[in-house]
């Protein structure tokens, strides 16, 4: 019990102390996860839309694979990227292992199926009438598809939010391909693991609090973007 109270206290003290090492760790966490999120979004939203709208053989199979990969264990993603980037692996000569780039690659691998799968769901939930209305108003096919994406943006934002939550909190992949090197690849989650292993429970909890605050601020930001794109915020009212 005491550990928790002390952890909260230590967390606040840690934030107030503006410890340069902790700031660097926090910024790296943000940099890695946000970059991975943007990349996963840029790849996943078009891929999800394509899978939702285009009929071709193997589409169902690919969708099912993507749905399965939505639950890809971070450690497994880390292992795959590790094996590929290892000196013995096919891309060993790139010398990316134990760098932030490797961590971003692993996180994109984790984030992409989530964004693609959930975007596909969101787009598939749109009805035929969206497309019909658009083309009957003279939209080209591309314009009509963009309109469908626009109508699905609530679901797509949910996809990005979910992915962000997963990436910022994930430890298995960044530990494996980043290596948790102090000052180079150490992020908040791997710091928590390390502090816990060293028996510094309250410091670990303190860093956990910073992580939560960070996640909360990112969610606020995403929600703000969401609000801006919905002038009428359409919530179901339950009376």
């Amino acid at each position: 019990m005491d550990v928790i109270g002390q952890g909260v206290k230590e967390g606040i003290l840690l934030i107030l102390s503006l410890d340069p090492e902790l700031i660097q760790v926090t910024l790296l966490s943000l940099q890695v996860s946000l970059t991975a999120l943007v990349a996963a979004g840029l790849l996943g939203i078009p891929a999800g839309t394509f899978l939702a709208l285009k009929n071709f053989t193997g589409r169902k199979l690919i969708l099912n694979i993507i749905y399965t990969l939505m639950g890809l264990p971070p450690v497994l993603a880390g292992l795959i990227v590790f094996l590929v980037l290892s000196n013995r692996g096919p891309l060993g000569e790139w010398q990316l292992l134990f760098t932030p780039s490797a961590m971003i690659i692993a996180q994109v691998l984790l984030g992409f199926p989530l964004v693609a799968g959930l975007s596909a769901r969101a787009v598939m939930s749109q009805r035929q009438e969206v497309y019909d209305t658009a083309v009957m108003l003279g939209a080209t096919r591309t314009q009509a598809v963009l309109s469908i994406i626009r109508e699905s943006r609530m679901g797509i934002i949910a996809a990005l939010t979910t992915a962000m939550g997963r990436l910022i909190a994930e430890v298995g992949a960044v530990m494996m391909v980043g290596g948790n090197i102090q000052g180079k690849t150490r992020v908040l989650t791997t710091s928590i693991v390390l502090e816990t292993r060293m028996g510094h429970d309250s410091r670990a909890l303190g860093i956990g609090i910073i992580l939560l605050i960070l996640a909360f601020m990112i969610m606020l930001l995403i929600l703000k973007l969401e609000k801006r794109s919905f002038k009428d915020d359409s919530t179901i009212q339950i009376v």
Partner: peptide, 8 residues
């Protein structure tokens, strides 16, 4: 029942 795009 015409479909309206999200927006004004």
């Amino acid at each position: 029942s015409s479909f309206m795009f999200e927006g004004s």
